[in-house]
Amino acid sequence: MRSGKLCGAAVVVALAATACGGSGGDGGRDTAGGAHGPGFPVRIADCKGATTTFPSAPRKIVTSNAASLEMLLRLGAGDRVIGTGFPPGKGALPGALGAQARKVPVLGKSVIPKEKLLGSGADLYIDTFASMNSMGRAGDAPSEEEFTAAGIKHLYLASTACAPMAGKPQRDLSGVEGDIKRLGAVTGTRERADALVAGMQKKTDKVHRAVGGIAPAERPTYFFFDYDAGTKQPVAVCRKQVANAVIGQAGARNVFEGCDGDFKPVSWEEVVAKNPDWIQLGVRHRGDAAADAKAYDEAAAFLKSFPATKGLAAVRNGKFLRIGSERTTIAGVGNADTVEEIAHTIHPERFKAAR
């Protein structure tokens, strides 16, 4: 885990936003030009109740990875992003979003080095994972005092940073939707945030009407196979990971919902014992459709040839879903699309009846 202090009261995680002053209706306009704007100041409370105040929208933002970067791009605040770590892979974001993302300077292909982050000139750093071990470089994580000294406000995505610390699992997309709305409040793009969330809810509500009434015991079991995490030892998505909510909202049962936290290495013996009805081939985007298809084929071929898994009914019957890892395990608007795709694949009769 990352340095223990990151899970304490000093961590600023966007859990609740309160607009103080103004009408709160900014029409999606960029309010960063003045000391104050409509809907400001905005106060964001962390997991422990401590608050960070934004008297106006930030002008220069650095994101830790593709999740918060994509949210800002969709909110129309991408022109204020001056750098990112863990940039989205080629093809991970569609069309114009991908083109915008490629223009953002990459400050680190993985974790942004401490000195580069503190010297970036940013006035806001949005971090996705409070519990990550900085990929083995915990010493690179600036302290809150160092962020303050550099004039950088520090926020986390609650759906990924707070979730592992929370006492309850993620069963719906309210955490992701809350992050989008909080970033909308902070960047002065509230109306755009509301529209994005409304679009997500329209999709998930339709799915819920079709499959929400299926009793838990009657739902097909589901294993997210993170092929890119390696095949020697599988990594399970647990009940506090965004993917658990995606799977549950789609009318399936995550076979590893019983494990606490967000991710956990498991054994192939455990996977076989769960005997999932469906397996998602979790592959990260390779850059184009042909490369993605090749990776999905490789993941399926592994399961069909690996002695521990080739006898599973789901493998023998080809009960595979070819859905990208990014929009399943990374918080974002695409989570709702994944809910739709899973639900339509495993419950096609429910949607035929709804037509």
Rank of each mutant, 00 (worst) to 15 (best):
I342C: 03
N275V: 08
D172K: 03
D260F: 01
G175N: 11
G76Q: 08
L107P: 14
A336G: 03
P113W: 05
G188I: 02
P94L: 02
G178F: 08
M71T: 14
K310F: 11
A99L: 03
C20G: 09
R190K: 11
S267V: 00
C238S: 14
A96H: 00
P220G: 02
V315M: 01
A343V: 10
E298V: 08
E218P: 00
R2H: 13
R327F: 13
P94N: 11
G199D: 00
R327K: 15
E257H: 11
S68M: 05
A150S: 11
G188T: 13
A336C: 03
K319F: 04
T51H: 11
G89N: 08
R350A: 15
I112R: 01
V211F: 02
G324Q: 15
R182N: 14
T160I: 05
G89Y: 05
V106S: 10
A293H: 07
D26E: 01
K264Y: 02
K310G: 09
D337M: 00
E177D: 13
A295Q: 06
C20P: 06
S325K: 07
G37E: 09
E269P: 12
G311L: 11
T31R: 01
G24V: 08
G282N: 13
A57F: 05
A150V: 05
A193R: 04
D194Y: 10
A77L: 01
L173Y: 11
V207K: 07
A353E: 01
L155R: 06
A57C: 09
V186N: 15
R209K: 10
T204F: 00
K352W: 01
L124R: 14
P265M: 10
A101P: 03
T187L: 13
L15A: 03
G136V: 00
R102V: 11
R192P: 01
R74A: 00
A336R: 07
I44V: 07
G212I: 12
N65Y: 07
H347C: 08
T31I: 04
T84H: 06
G324Y: 15
